[in-house]
């Protein structure tokens, strides 16, 4: 069966995530940038401002700004989230939308801006692993007994990681239960 949403690839989800705003401190002066979707600026040196993620990445690659790492991307915050995530058996802890993508981009482009980046990376990976196991146990395993599964607080990337399999499985169970 063809997936009605097409094949949304993880890199496309990352592309969507790059629209999220992030705070930067530019080190240059410039007027307003006109883009198709929005206008950004004016840029003043040492004046923090919000820009879309993709622009922040582009500027950071040219060493034109410093990225302010979001609050949730710190060892303390992530450790708390990981503990909460482990505490709950079935429920998912609320994580910022696109946390996997944003952290992955930041580790890639601006690892110097992230304090304790290696530790953060491991914590993110641990949280993702716990959540993946929950999706498997709470969602996919139960699919054989019910025709719908509910997963609250699951991010778009996590849905993408099971979309094709889940669609095929749902289709198969639906066909089997119709006879």
């Amino acid at each position: 069966m063809e997936d009605p949403l097409g094949k949304l690839m993880p890199s496309e989800v990352e592309f969507i995530a790059e629209d999220a705003p992030i705070t930067i401190t530019p080190n240059f002066q410039a007027g307003v940038f006109l883009f198709l979707k929005e206008r950004v600026g004016p840029f003043k040196p040492q004046r923090p401002m919000e820009v879309p993620m993709w622009l922040a990445v582009s500027l950071r690659r040219r060493d034109k700004c410093v990225i302010h790492v979001p609050e949730w991307l710190s060892v303390d915050a992530l450790t708390t989230k990981l503990e909460e995530e482990k505490m709950q058996q079935k429920q998912f802890v609320h994580m910022p939308a696109h946390f996997q993508e944003i952290s992955s981009i930041l580790f890639d482009v601006a690892s110097q801006d992230v304090p304790n980046s290696e530790e953060c990376r491991q914590l993110i990976q641990a949280i993702v692993d716990v959540r993946t196991a929950k999706i498997r146990q709470g969602g996919l395993d139960d699919m054989k007994d019910s025709l719908a599964i509910q997963l609250n607080n699951v991010t778009q990337m996590e849905i993408t990681s099971i979309r094709q399999f889940a669609c095929h499985a749902m289709d198969a169970f639906n066909r089997l239960s119709s006879v």
């Binding site: 094949k7 690839m9 993880p10 993408t160 990681s161 099971i162 979309r163 094709q164 399999f165 095929h168």
Partner: peptide, 9 residues
């Protein structure tokens, strides 16, 4: 389908 999901990820 599952394999493709996993590989892409």
């Amino acid at each position: 389908a599952g394999l493709q999901d996993d590989r892409a990820q």
